[in-house]
Design a protein around this nucleic acid. Structure first.
Lengths: 125, 125, 125, 125
DNA sequence: GTGGTCTAGACCACC
DNA sequence: GTGGTCTAGACCACG
């Protein structure tokens, strides 16, 4: 399900963009899968169709999606670059945060433990 | 030095708030230290005094700072709670990110390596 | 009607905050009701939009209200806690005042009479 | 002891005025008693002498105090009117508050109980 | 000198 | 249309 928070401070089109982008990157949406139609999604989320359009346009602009006029929107073959960029973005973030944690006196072992837990939990899926 | 990016998309007052909040949490600003005066800071950063005011008001509201009208703004005793909350906020973030990294196929060892590097670097300070 | 005294010593934004806060607490404004738009209210009260903004921001910060950018400001579900806090705040005040009245030699019966009158009058509504 | 909160948002001169005014009304300071000298008080409270002056001036203006140049400040015979005005001011306040409490659903008996407690406690002094 | 408030007018993103 | 941000400049109370 497309999960959107209408009250959130982050714009709806951005939430939609992030949502589909992530679904594509993590493989939930695969190459040539069709995205929900603009009208259908607009109704089911009770938002303005323009807002959906804006999200899809951004996905197109970033190369995650292509549109067939009169048909629909389909996911592209993800260039490995996109995935690598996302990974390095996340690594960058994690660096900054652990830096801050260190400054606040949190021990290395504690941070390691968090990572450990995440990977442990996942392996049970 | 107060470091602000005037071009950034995040509001100046938010940047200022984050900056001072962090300086207080990490101990750079100690109890009863005086913050730069509104006017002074406004001039040195070339921003409007109101923008500084907004940041200081937020700091005040969150209890990091108190103001004596006609005198200046001073840092409060930080309740341990604030620090703990910040730590758990950061831990929460790090959990989410490593979750994403795992999903993208990044190995645990690689993430661990990042943490390791951060703590190693710091220990040379 | 929103009733504001422009000449009063207490800041306009504070008056507005108090007004809406009270309307929400006493049930005149109910959950999801829309507050007057910033511009509209600014015009009708002949004050600056920023002043309204300040009041709404405070209401938001205290959790009485949420805003949807580009749409409007709406009242939140009031946590019972807020109401209880207000009651105990008022009780505290009434204690201090009757203490003072006692010191000035006002008889208990006289104070009781005041309360009696208030509750009598209300019951005719 | 003169009890002043330097951090409070209410101006120091106002706090001083309120303090002495109340001491006079409740009889702690009697007719012809001498108030602390401006310089002495300024030093002991670590505030600006101008601030003390301002408070004393206000007390003089309101007729609670008279000054003998070169000697000091002394309390006047309190006109019964001042006391009566204060009483009606307090009664007015208590009316407003109990009105609000009623609106919030607090029962009459509960409010009465508060008054009762205050008068009971006082009678043990 | 300081902080606090307010106005007037502008620009942006959002829907 | 809406709310959110920022600027420029003013006035006041405070110490």
């Amino acid at each position: 399900m497309v999960d959107i928070d209408l009250k959130s401070r982050t714009p709806i089109h951005k939430q939609l963009y992030d949502f589909f982008r992530w679904q594509i990157l993590d493989g939930s949406y695969k190459e040539n899968d069709e995205l929900p139609s603009v009208r259908e999604l607009a109704i089911s989320l009770a938002v303005n169709p323009n807002t959906i359009q804006k999200a899809y346009m951004e996905l197109r602009r970033e190369g995650y999606v292509f549109s067939v006029p009169g048909k629909g929107n389909y996911v592209n073959k993800i260039p490995k670059k996109s995935k690598d960029e996302e990974i390095s973005r996340l690594k960058n973030k994690i660096t900054k945060i652990s830096f801050k944690l260190e400054t606040l006196g949190v021990k290395k072992e504690e941070v390691m433990g968090i990572i450990e837990d995440v990977y442990k939990e996942k392996s049970y899926d």
